[in-house]
């Protein structure tokens, strides 16, 4: 004991600092988790969605379709609309191209323009070709393609991959 030179005053200072540090950490570390919790939640890929019967979809032209997905965000249900274009190249049930209408630049909705023979985005003049490839403008990548399947009754079903890329 006689070897210790810690004064009462210094001990009190150190103890106050230590207790303050423990309280700050005990609150501060959980708070980080509290603030970033929604960012760590896994986003689901989404269940397959039937978009129509093959016999109702014309061959050789872009057929628009849309679907709504309701997600629970916190204490509220949020319904979001998604859409795209179906192009049947021929009568064969596996000769189909399904493009997302969501512009890969900043998520505006593109429209098919017959005279331009391209998908045009109204927001920043993006231009995509008939296969979704970028022709002009700021988009970093082509339009998204939907995976699809056709069952015995001719019902076309897609997997809404767009959900994955959504925050």
């Amino acid at each position: 004991m006689s070897g210790s030179h810690l004064s009462r005053r210094d001990f009190m200072k150190a103890a106050t600092g230590a207790v303050g540090g423990v309280i700050t950490a005990a609150l501060g570390i959980p708070v980080i988790g509290f603030l970033i919790a929604p960012a760590l939640r896994e986003d689901k890929a989404g269940a397959p969605i039937a978009v129509g019967k093959l016999e109702d979809i014309p061959v050789g032209k872009f057929h628009p379709f849309s679907f709504t997905i309701t997600k629970v965000n916190g204490w509220e249900r949020t319904a979001s609309n998604y859409g795209g274009f179906i192009l049947r190249n021929s009568e064969a049930p596996d000769d189909i191209l399904i493009l997302s209408s969501r512009c890969t630049h900043l998520s505006c909705t593109v429209n098919w323009n017959e005279s331009a023979n391209a998908f045009l985005c109204p927001c920043h003049d993006a231009k995509f070709g008939p296969e979704g490839q970028v022709l002009d403008g700021p988009p970093p990548e082509p339009l998204g393609h939907f995976e699809y399947s056709v069952d015995d009754q001719g019902v076309l079903t897609i997997v809404p991959v767009e959900l994955k890329s959504e925050a």
């Binding site: 959980p30 509290f34 919790a37 929604p38 916190g74 204490w75």
Partner: peptide, 26 residues
Amino acid sequence: YYTPSPDHAYDSITYIMNDVAFGWLI
């Protein structure tokens, strides 16, 4: 997280208590 609206006040608190990390603690 809290929302001062009759529609969402209670739901937002339930969310804090059950779904937010350490929400029960704060």
